[in-house]
Simulated assay, not measured.
Amino acid sequence: MYRRTVTDVVSPPEGLILFCGMSIGYEDAAVPYAHTGRAPLTETVTFLGG
């Protein structure tokens, strides 16, 4: 939904697309849902520039 907006700001190299998601806040323990594991950051994120 926001990929194009983020792309306009970040300007990734040609051939790359941005896939991003961020969760902000605290878990609501009253909401039942399946917990899933997380891949290590190095497997899922590429930092450009610096």
Rank of each mutant, 00 (worst) to 15 (best):
T5N: 10
G49N: 06
G21N: 05
R38H: 12
T36R: 13
S11P: 00
S11Y: 03
T7V: 08
L41Y: 07
R4G: 12
T42C: 10
P13Q: 03
V10L: 07
V6L: 09
E14Q: 05
E14S: 03
E43C: 07
T44I: 11
V31S: 00
P40Y: 01
F47I: 15
S23E: 06
F19N: 15
G49C: 01
L16V: 08
A29C: 06
T36C: 14
M22P: 03
I24K: 04
G15W: 00
P12Q: 02
L16I: 06
V10D: 02
V9I: 14
S11F: 06
A30E: 11
T36E: 15
R4C: 11
T5K: 12
V10S: 00
G15A: 03
L16D: 02
G37H: 05
S23C: 06
R38M: 11
T7N: 07
T36F: 15
Y33A: 12
H35S: 09
G15I: 03
R38S: 14
V31Q: 00
G50D: 13
T42G: 10
L18I: 13
A29Y: 09
R3T: 14
L18Q: 04
T5F: 14
A34C: 07
V10M: 05
A29I: 10
A30V: 08
A34E: 14
V31R: 01
M1E: 09
D28I: 02
V6W: 03
P13L: 00
E43I: 07
C20Y: 14
M22T: 11
L18M: 10
